[in-house]
């Protein structure tokens, strides 16, 4: 493993470095856990790493709450998500996804931005943020800010909508609806062990219910089941207007079928496509059980 490294200390220096390297081979290093593992196995010649972890900018590494919701800097770590009580209360799906990510040690350094930009189909935090209908905010070397919905962020396996002259700057999660009384929010991660897993299948859901028990907003997404994390839009639409506690067996199955229609899983050494589909159907039903 051999590469050069640039250590910008400010956002301005960071954009300057990106601009300077436009014609070169470069990659960003955030928590570097995935990146170093990959480079140890497959070293790349002539690679420069732009090290993001020394950039001092609270918009890049901190958390900010507003009436509109919550904004996480791209360098906000999984550990910081896990220990944040407000996140646990308002967006449990995000808390659970971070808490079940890799290990204690990895979570200290792994970042939200890293989990998104790696664009792994089994990205845990990514899956939760898709269910939460988050917005990705990019900064470009020209100084322009660009926002896109996270559903448009993932293009394919390990490819995203970020331009070569852009940096993922932050992620905004919209506040829960004012009329929301109860939130059913969780992240179901399936693996063989209880810990240290890369999801074989994952399901993130964030379902908001009003005082009458009626579902007013629903976000459901699936991981490790398609080339990218996917938002199960039809399944979400199907739930709107229904009473959460009165969903029938038939409706549960219809919902699970709709979730499954977004899945096109592969067979690999961790599980077969058959298993992934079967489990996805079952855990989709289990939301209401």
């Amino acid at each position: 493993m051999n590469f050069e490294i640039i250590n910008p200390g400010t956002t301005k220096e960071l954009l300057g470095a990106v601009n300077k390297l436009q014609k070169e081979k470069f990659r960003f290093g955030a928590g570097c856990t995935d990146l170093l593992m990959e480079l140890k196995k497959k070293p790349e010649d002539g690679l420069t790493i732009i090290n993001l972890s020394q950039v001092k900018d609270s918009s890049f590494s901190g958390i900010k709450k507003s009436a509109k919701g919550m904004r996480l800097g791209a360098m906000f770590t999984a550990h910081k998500i896990v220990v944040n009580e407000e996140i646990k209360n308002a967006f449990n799906v995000l808390h659970e996804s971070a808490h079940n990510l890799a290990s204690t040690q990895i979570r200290q350094v792994a970042t939200v931005g890293g989990n998104l930009c790696t664009a792994s189909p089994s990205g845990d935090i990514a899956c939760a943020l898709v269910a939460l209908d988050a917005t990705c905010e990019m900064l470009s070397t020209t100084g322009k800010r660009r926002e896109i919905n996270i559903k448009e962020f993932f293009i394919g396996v390990r490819t995203t909508a970020i331009g070569k002259n852009e940096v993922l700057y932050g992620i905004a999660v919209p506040a829960n609806e004012k009329k929301t009384k109860t939130i059913h929010s969780n992240f179901i991660k399936i693996g063989t062990r209880r810990s240290m897993e890369c999801s074989v299948v994952s399901l993130a859901y964030h379902i908001q219910v009003n005082e009458e028990g009626v579902i007013i907003k629903a976000g459901v997404s699936i991981g490790a089941s398609a080339p990218t994390v996917r938002f199960a839009e039809e399944a979400c639409d199907f739930l709107i207007g229904k009473k959460f506690k009165a969903i029938s067996q038939k409706e549960k199955e219809e919902f699970a079928e709709k979730v499954l229609s977004y899945a096109s899983p592969i067979t690999d050494i961790r599980a077969t496509s058959w298993y992934r589909k079967e489990v996805l159907f079952n855990i989709s039903k289990s939301i209401f059980e």
Binding site: T192, R193, R194, S195, M196, C198, I269, R270
Partner: peptide, 10 residues
Amino acid sequence: HNYKMLTAAD
């Protein structure tokens, strides 16, 4: 990663 020894959590 893929040879799965059990962890303390198990």
